[in-house]
Write a protein that binds this DNA or RNA. Structure first.
Lengths: 110, 110
DNA sequence: TGAACATGTAGGTAAGTACCTACGTATTTG
DNA sequence: CAAATACGTAGGTACTTACCTACATGTTCA
């Protein structure tokens, strides 16, 4: 098995999603991030490292502090994957007509 | 640790993403899905169960076959989370002016 | 300079994941 | 009815994750 550290894995964890949300507002150093969670600082440090590995944040060293800044570009990949299905959850496609139409299509496909 | 089986976890796995893509075109039974992968049928069966647990697919029993149909509604959650950051990766926000603006903002925040 | 601070990392644990083979159970079909 | 088909699940393995408590390193400040 191969170790996957991609953006989809990154946002699979709720703690990491929350970190991204926090950094969307402003840059924070590691302790500031860790203070928002019940988990230990080293654990948060590892989550931050994960996010950095995926290119979702960059770290700027300033003295003894490391300021984390979110880089959202790689979220585009997730966005694009999800958006291709947007048509399926819009009202238009949930109408009865389209539902029946889909059923018919499946029948003829088999 | 708690076992999380939410939509974010579901789409974290590339095989599961591909299954969803396949089902976007039409309903398929389990063997039809498994045939598209190198992995064994039981493994695919477990991925399908995962997706079912997350409400991303429903299974219609027809004789000895189980037809899997994608249900995209729960992807809305992912879509909404990602889209809130869309502003950050648009051209407008990548311009030099806004970059400098952001730097200034961070400085004054600290 | 020495204490306090910010952080990384080593090392360990419990649990989850992704995968497999083997086998059991319906259902269809020759 | 017996063989073939479609599928679920049990049980095992190797690896990853998320978490922790030390501990080490670099930086600031009294």
């Amino acid at each position: 098995m191969e170790k996957r550290r991609d953006v989809f894995m990154a946002i699979a964890d709720p703690t990491r999603r929350e970190i991204i949300n926090m950094l969307a507002h402003k840059s924070l150093n590691l302790n500031a991030i860790a203070d928002h969670f019940d988990t230990s600082r080293p654990t948060i440090s590892q989550h931050v490292k994960f996010l950095q590995d995926c290119g979702l944040i960059t770290i700027n060293k300033q003295g003894r502090e490391r300021y984390c800044e979110a880089k959202f570009d790689n979220l585009k990949e997730v966005s694009q994957w999800v958006e291709q299905f947007k048509q399926f959850w819009t009202e238009r496609f949930n109408s009865l007509d389209n539902y029946l139409e889909k059923i018919q299509k499946n029948k003829s496909d088999k």
